[in-house]
Protein backbone atom coordinates (compact mmCIF):
# COMPACT_ATOMS: atom_id res chain seq x y z
CA UNK A 1 0.00 0.00 0.00
CA UNK A 2 3.06 2.27 0.11
CA UNK A 3 2.71 2.57 -3.68
CA UNK A 4 -0.86 3.86 -3.30
CA UNK A 5 0.25 6.38 -0.68
CA UNK A 6 3.12 7.63 -2.88
CA UNK A 7 0.88 7.92 -5.96
CA UNK A 8 -1.79 9.77 -3.97
CA UNK A 9 0.81 12.08 -2.40
CA UNK A 10 2.32 13.02 -5.79
CA UNK A 11 -1.20 13.53 -7.22
CA UNK A 12 -2.10 15.77 -4.26
CA UNK A 13 1.13 17.74 -4.76
CA UNK A 14 0.25 18.21 -8.45
CA UNK A 15 -3.19 19.48 -7.46
CA UNK A 16 -1.64 21.97 -5.02
CA UNK A 17 0.84 23.23 -7.65
CA UNK A 18 -1.88 23.56 -10.29
CA UNK A 19 -4.07 25.42 -7.78
CA UNK A 20 -1.24 27.94 -7.33
CA UNK A 21 -1.15 28.43 -11.10
CA UNK A 22 -4.93 28.94 -11.35
CA UNK A 23 -5.36 32.63 -10.65
CA UNK A 24 -8.96 32.90 -11.89
CA UNK A 25 -11.06 30.02 -13.19
CA UNK A 26 -9.79 26.54 -13.91
CA UNK A 27 -10.94 26.73 -17.54
CA UNK A 28 -8.59 29.70 -18.05
CA UNK A 29 -5.56 27.70 -16.89
CA UNK A 30 -6.37 24.23 -18.23
CA UNK A 31 -3.19 24.00 -20.36
CA UNK A 32 -0.93 24.79 -17.39
CA UNK A 33 -2.85 22.36 -15.17
CA UNK A 34 -2.39 19.55 -17.72
CA UNK A 35 1.37 20.24 -18.00
CA UNK A 36 1.74 20.11 -14.19
CA UNK A 37 -0.16 16.82 -14.03
CA UNK A 38 1.84 15.24 -16.86
CA UNK A 39 5.00 16.15 -14.93
CA UNK A 40 3.41 14.71 -11.77
CA UNK A 41 2.58 11.46 -13.57
CA UNK A 42 6.18 11.15 -14.78
CA UNK A 43 7.49 11.70 -11.24
CA UNK A 44 5.02 9.14 -9.85
CA UNK A 45 6.05 6.62 -12.53
CA UNK A 46 9.70 7.10 -11.52
CA UNK A 47 8.92 6.72 -7.80
CA UNK A 48 6.51 3.78 -8.01
CA UNK A 49 8.49 1.39 -10.20
CA UNK A 50 6.71 -1.79 -9.10
CA UNK A 51 3.34 -0.66 -10.47
CA UNK A 52 2.52 -0.95 -14.20
CA UNK A 53 2.72 2.57 -15.77
CA UNK A 54 -0.64 1.88 -17.48
CA UNK A 55 -2.22 1.38 -14.04
CA UNK A 56 -0.71 4.64 -12.82
CA UNK A 57 -1.98 6.44 -15.94
CA UNK A 58 -5.51 5.11 -15.41
CA UNK A 59 -5.41 6.22 -11.76
CA UNK A 60 -3.95 9.61 -12.65
CA UNK A 61 -6.23 10.61 -15.52
CA UNK A 62 -9.30 9.19 -13.77
CA UNK A 63 -8.55 11.16 -10.60
CA UNK A 64 -7.75 14.26 -12.65
CA UNK A 65 -11.05 14.01 -14.56
CA UNK A 66 -12.95 13.69 -11.29
CA UNK A 67 -11.02 16.56 -9.71
CA UNK A 68 -11.53 18.91 -12.69
CA UNK A 69 -15.26 18.12 -12.69
CA UNK A 70 -15.68 18.79 -8.98
CA UNK A 71 -13.45 21.88 -9.05
CA UNK A 72 -15.26 23.41 -12.03
CA UNK A 73 -18.62 22.89 -10.36
CA UNK A 74 -17.41 24.47 -7.13
CA UNK A 75 -16.32 27.64 -8.92
CA UNK A 76 -18.94 27.93 -11.66
CA UNK A 77 -22.17 26.18 -10.67
CA UNK A 78 -24.95 28.74 -10.70
CA UNK A 79 -27.12 26.30 -8.71
CA UNK A 80 -24.47 26.33 -5.97
CA UNK A 81 -24.37 30.15 -6.06
CA UNK A 82 -28.14 30.17 -5.55
CA UNK A 83 -27.89 27.86 -2.56
CA UNK A 84 -25.26 30.24 -1.10
CA UNK A 85 -27.55 33.22 -1.75
CA UNK A 86 -30.40 31.43 0.05
CA UNK A 87 -28.04 30.59 2.93
CA UNK A 88 -27.08 34.27 3.22
CA UNK A 89 -30.65 35.38 3.73
CA UNK A 90 -32.09 35.95 0.27
CA UNK A 91 -35.57 34.51 0.36
CA UNK A 92 -37.56 35.65 -2.66
CA UNK A 93 -36.99 34.68 -6.28
CA UNK A 94 -36.16 38.31 -7.12
CA UNK A 95 -33.57 38.59 -4.33
CA UNK A 96 -31.82 35.35 -5.27
CA UNK A 97 -31.77 36.19 -8.98
CA UNK A 98 -30.61 39.77 -8.36
CA UNK A 99 -27.67 38.49 -6.29
CA UNK A 100 -26.72 35.80 -8.80
CA UNK A 101 -27.05 38.07 -11.83
CA UNK A 102 -24.98 40.75 -10.11
CA UNK A 103 -22.13 38.42 -9.09
CA UNK A 104 -22.29 35.65 -11.71
CA UNK A 105 -24.43 37.14 -14.49
CA UNK A 106 -23.69 37.58 -18.20
CA UNK A 107 -21.25 40.49 -17.67
CA UNK A 108 -19.04 38.55 -15.24
CA UNK A 109 -19.14 35.50 -17.50
CA UNK A 110 -18.13 37.49 -20.60
CA UNK A 111 -15.22 38.95 -18.60
CA UNK A 112 -14.13 35.42 -17.64
CA UNK A 113 -14.44 34.15 -21.22
CA UNK A 114 -12.30 37.10 -22.39
CA UNK A 115 -9.75 36.37 -19.63
CA UNK A 116 -9.64 32.72 -20.76
CA UNK A 117 -9.14 33.92 -24.38
CA UNK A 118 -12.33 32.23 -25.54
CA UNK A 119 -13.73 35.66 -26.50
CA UNK A 120 -11.91 38.78 -27.68
CA UNK A 121 -12.97 42.41 -27.36
CA UNK A 122 -12.92 44.12 -30.76
CA UNK A 123 -14.26 47.48 -32.03
CA UNK A 124 -17.30 45.50 -33.27
CA UNK A 125 -17.93 44.10 -29.78
CA UNK A 126 -17.11 40.74 -28.23
CA UNK A 127 -16.26 38.03 -30.75
CA UNK A 128 -15.12 34.42 -30.28
CA UNK A 129 -11.42 33.70 -30.72
CA UNK A 130 -10.13 30.64 -32.61
CA UNK A 131 -9.90 28.84 -29.25
CA UNK A 132 -13.47 29.91 -28.45
CA UNK A 133 -14.85 28.71 -31.80
CA UNK A 134 -13.06 25.38 -31.34
CA UNK A 135 -14.47 24.99 -27.81
CA UNK A 136 -17.97 25.87 -29.03
CA UNK A 137 -17.76 23.35 -31.88
CA UNK A 138 -16.48 20.64 -29.51
CA UNK A 139 -19.25 21.42 -27.01
CA UNK A 140 -21.93 21.20 -29.71
CA UNK A 141 -20.49 17.85 -30.85
CA UNK A 142 -20.37 16.30 -27.38
CA UNK A 143 -23.59 17.81 -26.02
Amino acid sequence: MTNVAVACAVFAASVIVSERLTTHKLQSALGRVLIVHLAGLLIATALVRTVDPAVLAVFWFGSLAGWIGVRSHLESSILLQMLHALDRGATTREQVLARCLEEYGPTARIDELVRGRFLARTPRGVTPSRKGRLAARAALFFR
Binding site: M1, V51, S63, G66, G69
Partner: peptide
Protein backbone atom coordinates in the same frame (compact mmCIF):
# COMPACT_ATOMS: atom_id res chain seq x y z
CA UNK B 1 -4.20 -4.83 -3.57
CA UNK B 2 -2.31 -1.59 -4.26
CA UNK B 3 -2.70 -2.00 -8.02
CA UNK B 4 -6.39 -2.86 -7.65
CA UNK B 5 -6.95 0.20 -5.44
CA UNK B 6 -5.33 2.47 -8.03
CA UNK B 7 -7.24 1.15 -11.06
CA UNK B 8 -10.61 1.07 -9.29
CA UNK B 9 -10.07 4.63 -7.98
CA UNK B 10 -9.05 5.73 -11.48
CA UNK B 11 -12.05 4.11 -13.15
CA UNK B 12 -14.44 5.65 -10.59
CA UNK B 13 -12.80 9.05 -11.05
CA UNK B 14 -13.12 8.79 -14.82
CA UNK B 15 -16.83 7.93 -14.49
CA UNK B 16 -17.42 10.86 -12.09
CA UNK B 17 -15.45 13.28 -14.27
CA UNK B 18 -17.35 12.36 -17.43
Amino acid sequence: PATCTLVIAGAMGWWTGL
